[in-house]
C-alpha cells in the first residue's frame, strides 16, 4: 500500500516558543465566558438571590435601623455590601461549575493533551468567574441606586465597592475551583460553595462590629468578609477611608493567595500521571 504519497509539513517539535501564560489565560477565559454566557439559567439565580435579600433586608430592617448606633448613614448603604458579598459567594461557584463540567465531559483531558500552561487551567475559570461577579455586583449597585442609595464617595466609590466584591469572589473561587479539581464532581463542588455561606454571618452582618460581643466578635475579627463589609460601608455611607480599604484589600489578597495555593495543589493532584 502506498501510504506515503504525501508527507506532512511538520515543524520540529519543541523548538517553537510556547505562548506566554497571559495569552493562555486570556484564550481560556474567553472560552469559559462564551460557555458561561450560553447558560444564562445558571447565571441568573445568584443575581436574583442577591437582589431578593437586598430588598428583604431593607424592608425588614430599614425602619428599625434608626435605633441601631454606628450605621453612619443610610441602612441601605449599610446592608447593600452584604448583598454584594453573598453574591460573591454564590457567584464563585459558577467558575467551578464550568470547570467541573469540563472535567466530566472530558474536555479538560483534551486541554491537558495540548501544550497549555497548567496555571492557565486554574486562572481561566477564576478570571471568567471574576468577570461574571463584576457584572453581578454592578447590577446589585444599580438596583441599590434605584432604591435610593446615595453613595458618599460617588461613582468612583461604587466602582471600588464592585472591585472589592470581585476581589473577595476571586478568593472564594480559588476554593470552589480546588473543590472542582479535587472531586471532579458537580455535586461536591456545589456543596463546597455552600461551605462559605456561614462565614457571611460570622461577621458584622446586620449590625456594626462595635455591637458584636464574645465569640462572635472574635470570629468576625478573623473573617476577611468583616473587613470587606466595613470598607464597602465606609465607601457608601461615610466617605473614603484609606485604612479600611487597605485592610480589606489585604484580607482579600490573603484569602486569594491561600486559596490559589490550595488550587495549585488540587491541580497537581488531578494532573499527576499515575
Amino acid at each position: 500500500m502506498d501510504t506515503n504519497m504525501y508527507v506532512l509539513p511538520i515543524e520540529k517539535p519543541a523548538v517553537k516558543k510556547p505562548l506566554s501564560l497571559p495569552v493562555h489565560v486570556f484564550l481560556l477565559t474567553m472560552r469559559s465566558l462564551t460557555s458561561l454566557l450560553r447558560t444564562p439559567e445558571a447565571l441568573l439565580p445568584p443575581i436574583a438571590i442577591s437582589i431578593f435579600f437586598l430588598v428583604i433586608y431593607q424592608s425588614t430592617l430599614g425602619k428599625a435601623a434608626g435605633s441601631i448606633p454606628g450605621i453612619g448613614g443610610s441602612y441601605l448603604g449599610f446592608i447593600l455590601p452584604l448583598s454584594i458579598v453573598s453574591g460573591s459567594l454564590s457567584g464563585s461557584g459558577i467558575a467551578a461549575q464550568n470547570l467541573v463540567r469540563d472535567i466530566e465531559r472530558g474536555y479538560f483531558d483534551k486541554l491537558l493533551l495540548t501544550p497549555v500552561r497548567r496555571a492557565a487551567l486554574l486562572l481561566a475559570p477564576i478570571m471568567a468567574g471574576a468577570v461574571i461577579l463584576g457584572i453581578q455586583a454592578a447590577i446589585v449597585v444599580a438596583v441599590g441606586l434605584i432604591m435610593g442609595l446615595k453613595p458618599a464617595t460617588g461613582f468612583l466609590g461604587m466602582l471600588a465597592v464592585i472591585g472589592l466584591g470581585v476581589l473577595l469572589g476571586i478568593g472564594f473561587a480559588g476554593f470552589t475551583v480546588s473543590a472542582a479539581l479535587g472531586s471532579g464532581s458537580a455535586a461536591a463542588t456545589q456543596g463546597a460553595s455552600f461551605l462559605f455561606f456561614p462565614l457571611t454571618f460570622l461577621a458584622p452582618t446586620f449590625v456594626p462590629l462595635s455591637l458584636l460581643s464574645g465569640w462572635l466578635e472574635v470570629a468576625a475579627k478573623l473573617n476577611p468578609i468583616t473587613y470587606v463589609l466595613e470598607a464597602m460601608r465606609a465607601l457608601l455611607n461615610t466617605g473614603w477611608d484609606g485604612n479600611a480599604i487597605g485592610t480589606s484589600i489585604l484580607a482579600c489578597l490573603g484569602l486569594a493567595v491561600a486559596m490559589y495555593a490550595l488550587a495549585v495543589f488540587a491541580l497537581s493532584v488531578r494532573t499527576r500521571r499515575t
Binding site: R31, T34, S35, T39, D102, R105, G106, Y107, K110, L113
Partner: peptide, 13 residues
C-alpha cells in the same frame, strides 16, 4: 493526535 473514547467536547461551544 488523540481522540479518546469519551469525546472531549464542550457541547456549548
Amino acid at each position: 493526535g488523540v481522540a479518546l473514547q469519551e469525546i472531549g467536547i464542550d457541547p456549548l461551544m
